[in-house]
Computed example of a mutant assay.
Amino acid sequence: MPPERNADFVYYMEDVLDLYHEPYDENRPVVCFDESSKALRGHESEPLPAKPGAVARVGHRYERNGKERIHLATEPLTGWVNVEITERRRTIEFIDRMVELADDHYPDADCIRVVVDQLNTHNPAGFYQFFPPDQAQAYLDRFEFHYVPKKGSWLNMAEIELNVLKRQCLDRRIYHAATLRSEVAAWQEHRNAADRLIDWQFTTDDARIKLRRLYPIEINEDQQVLG
């Protein structure tokens, strides 16, 4: 959590919380985007399988095989999730993911509202690095970026899906990048078929009560509810 009385944190937090409680609009989808990584590691010696009276055993020593970056986008109000695996995490990978949202996943949307962390690579100006000005502006006209506050990544609902991915698919050693991609693709297919929506309950009114120490001007609970 940030220090007390942090106007910057409050500004970004309330912006995201208000966005989360807007009604579903297929022409203006809300998509949460976040990134993580997976270290590729293999067993130095073959694990011993489980047998009657003994659990499976895995050696502590392992072989390193680099690291892959995980880029996850999810639309909480529909349950849709998409994961891409890359070797690096730079501005160009972020722009590639945004272009995929615009061209492949939401080609008919009037505006794609994207919730992201305040990383230096999550910079909309990157469109001008990789596209001519008219094309960059055309893409930017279709996006609206909402940033979670620094030290407030818990406000990005993509973290929920990343945690599910890690728990259900990545909680073991994977040595080859190709294996990682196929396993994640299978998880993604299963996750999308399940239609599991994210029911976000925390509101701006809740924040003004439960996190009132963050607000520069002290307010009481009656003021919180009136907003």
Results as ranks from 00 to 15, higher is better:
residue 1 M to I: 12
residue 6 N to L: 11
residue 7 A to H: 10
residue 14 E to V: 05
residue 19 L to S: 08
residue 20 Y to C: 07
residue 20 Y to M: 10
residue 22 E to F: 01
residue 23 P to T: 06
residue 25 D to K: 06
residue 26 E to Q: 14
residue 31 V to A: 10
residue 33 F to M: 15
residue 33 F to R: 04
residue 33 F to E: 10
residue 35 E to G: 00
residue 37 S to M: 11
residue 37 S to A: 14
residue 39 A to K: 13
residue 40 L to T: 06
residue 42 G to V: 05
residue 45 S to K: 13
residue 46 E to K: 11
residue 46 E to S: 10
residue 49 P to M: 08
residue 49 P to I: 10
residue 53 G to V: 04
residue 56 A to H: 07
residue 60 H to S: 15
residue 68 E to M: 14
residue 70 I to K: 00
residue 76 P to H: 08
residue 76 P to V: 07
residue 77 L to V: 04
residue 77 L to H: 04
residue 77 L to F: 02
residue 83 V to A: 01
residue 92 I to M: 11
residue 98 M to C: 11
residue 99 V to Y: 01
residue 103 D to M: 10
residue 105 H to C: 06
residue 108 D to R: 07
residue 108 D to Q: 12
residue 108 D to S: 13
residue 111 C to W: 01
residue 117 D to R: 05
residue 118 Q to C: 12
residue 120 N to R: 12
residue 121 T to P: 01
residue 122 H to N: 15
residue 123 N to C: 09
residue 127 F to D: 03
residue 131 F to G: 01
residue 132 P to G: 06
residue 138 A to C: 10
residue 141 D to P: 03
residue 142 R to K: 15
residue 143 F to C: 06
residue 144 E to G: 04
residue 144 E to S: 13
residue 147 Y to A: 09
residue 147 Y to G: 07
residue 148 V to H: 01
residue 149 P to F: 03
residue 149 P to K: 02
residue 150 K to H: 05
residue 154 W to F: 10
residue 156 N to S: 08
residue 161 E to Q: 02
residue 162 L to A: 04
residue 163 N to G: 14
residue 164 V to T: 01
residue 164 V to I: 14
residue 167 R to C: 03
residue 169 C to S: 09
residue 170 L to V: 01
residue 171 D to N: 15
residue 171 D to C: 12
residue 177 A to P: 11
residue 178 A to P: 00
residue 179 T to L: 13
residue 180 L to V: 06
residue 181 R to V: 07
residue 183 E to I: 00
residue 183 E to D: 09
residue 189 E to N: 04
residue 190 H to D: 03
residue 193 A to D: 14
residue 193 A to W: 02
residue 196 R to I: 11
residue 199 D to Q: 14
residue 201 Q to G: 13
residue 202 F to M: 12
residue 202 F to S: 07
residue 203 T to V: 07
residue 203 T to H: 09
residue 206 D to Q: 03
residue 207 A to C: 13
residue 208 R to I: 02
residue 212 R to K: 15
residue 213 R to H: 07
residue 213 R to S: 11
residue 214 L to K: 08
residue 215 Y to F: 15
residue 221 E to H: 12
residue 224 Q to G: 15
residue 225 V to Q: 15
residue 225 V to F: 07
residue 225 V to S: 10
residue 226 L to H: 09
residue 227 G to C: 10
